[in-house]
Design a protein around this nucleic acid. Structure first.
Lengths: 157, 157
DNA sequence: ACATTGAGTGTTATGTTATAACAATGCACG
DNA sequence: CGTGCATTGTTATAACATAACACTCAATGT
């Protein structure tokens, strides 16, 4: 499977690719982090921190506290493996591993899934706008709510 | 004062302009809502719901509970007078009253202020990207963190 | 005038998301 | 073989948001 920017996006192999990236870059993928990785890998939609917490507790049959989850999320976010979706207070696997990029999240109101697309045009337009007012960009968040193709088609059918 | 899109943006008159818009459109600008309006008018930066709550409690010398604030915010947001800034969990006056627009928030990490700019190019690029993947847009959130011109210049000086 | 209605607000309680602060573990390296 | 540092555990609490229900009051129709 390939998307518009030519990079493979396959949820089934996402976790493995993150693992590989950690190996190559010397990041410490501990057992805890690997379990969280698997939880993301198993989920179709973005996950809230407390959903991860519950799933983690369930899989380990022992209580896990919030800071454990948030620290793990910090790790993944810091290295670009996971994005926070601000408008959902949820977290989603980065679908463009390896690009150090600006992705836009398309969040389907029907199925709850989010899709990350990268579009240099969008980034360019945003950068131009910011530059025009003298604003120096550090981080850009672009999120859209709507309906994904599948849900639109299902609805029409 | 005018910005790129030619519409006046003047914090000092913002509250008055909202009041006028309410009058003309038949929205009920109650005393509570007017007080919240004034609080926004007096603030340079986006406000958290609980900051509004405290300020409201202070000005009225009586306790105000969260639902009161959130309901008031709902009113303003619904009518496009205030925007929620998702990445801050905060609320800011709409700087483009009257446009039924897509605004992008530029949030300064130094001074905390946010500036709302409208750029058809950004919206066009986002719409094109979404359309290319078959995604139907309902709502778009674009927020950027960085440094505003003033803070950059102050830092350089 | 009076009942009805509905918007707005008050009040209490609780749900949800996130972090601070410090203790314990365990591995890596000199 | 102990010292340091990253990681994880634990407890407590902060910060953000909503559910559910009660009360007030102005507008409306008869």
């Amino acid at each position: 499977m390939a998307n518009a920017c030519g990079c493979a996006h396959d949820p089934a192999t996402w976790a493995a690719r993150v693992e590989l990236a950690c190996l190559r870059q010397g990041f410490h993928l501990t057992p805890l982090r690997r379990r969280v990785l698997d939880i993301f890998g198993d989920s179709a939609a973005p996950l809230g921190a407390y959903a991860i917490l519950e799933e983690l507790s369930r899989r380990e049959s022992k209580h896990v506290a919030p800071p454990t989850v948030y620290r793990t999320l910090d790790f993944f976010i810091e290295h670009g493996f996971v994005h926070k979706i601000e408008s959902l207070n949820a977290y989603a696997p980065c679908e463009h591993l390896g690009h150090a990029h600006h992705g836009m999240q398309l969040i389907c109101a029907a199925c709850g899934r989010s899709e990350e697309i990268e579009d240099p045009e969008v980034m360019r337009a945003i950068a131009a706008s910011a530059a025009a007012t003298g604003f120096t960009l550090h981080r850009v968040v672009t999120e859209a709510q709507g309906l994904c193709r599948r849900c639109v088609e299902a609805h029409e059918a």
